[in-house]
């Protein structure tokens, strides 16, 4: 079980207007703000609950994604993992760092916040990680026992892909509030 394609989504609970973000995304390309080689903007605002607005890249894609009617910032790594990303935990860490960077930029440029209390991991790699109870258990253990503690204090992990084998394994992680 060693997935190539890992996506992490940070949810947005406030109103967003994707039309306003087209220029923002182009600006991120112009200013080389994101990790990885980012190529172009793909606009799917017209597709209900679809992939939204994407920044297509070589190693991975960033998006303001509308899937499931739950908007969020996503990063999906696809290929050419950086050196050292040779465990699933390390790969989750890379993906999380990149999506958090996108979320920071979003906050900086638009004021939009992501929900710090939850995130979603989607492993769109049905060969390495089919949507089975065994896969969920394995990924859950990796998330819960991550030595780098990249997610912070986890309060719950659950499979949100159901038991439909055609779905990609999708896990929602709840993060406990950090005491101030």
């Amino acid at each position: 079980m060693f997935p190539e394609r890992i996506q992490i989504k940070l949810f947005i609970t406030e109103e967003i207007n994707l039309a306003d973000l087209v220029s923002v995304f182009h600006g991120w390309i112009q200013q080389n703000e994101l990790d990885g080689l980012v190529l172009d903007v793909a606009d799917y605002r017209h597709v209900p609950n679809g992939p939204g607005l994407l920044l297509m890249g070589h190693e991975g894609d960033y998006a303001l994604d509308l899937a499931d009617g739950r908007p969020g910032v996503t990063y999906k790594h696809k290929r050419d993992w950086p050196a050292g990303a040779d465990t699933v935990a390390a790969r989750l860490g890379v993906a999380l760092a990149r999506v958090r960077r996108a979320a920071e930029l979003l906050k900086r440029d638009t004021g939009i916040n992501v929900d710090p209390a939850r995130l979603e991991i989607r492993i769109a790699d049905r060969l390495a990680v089919p949507n089975t109870a065994e896969s969920f258990e394995a990924i859950q253990q990796i998330v819960l026992n991550d030595p780098q503690d990249v997610f912070g204090p986890i309060s719950a992990v659950r499979n949100v892909a159901g038991d439909d084998p055609r779905n990609a394994l999708t896990i929602e992680v709840e993060i406990a509030p950090v005491p101030v």
Binding site: R5, A42, Y44, V47, G50, P51, L54, M56, D61, A67, A124, D125, R126, R166, A168
Partner: peptide, 10 residues
């Protein structure tokens, strides 16, 4: 599934 894994979900 292919669109989800290799493309842009479209």
């Amino acid at each position: 599934q292919l669109a989800e894994e290799y493309s842009d979900n479209i």
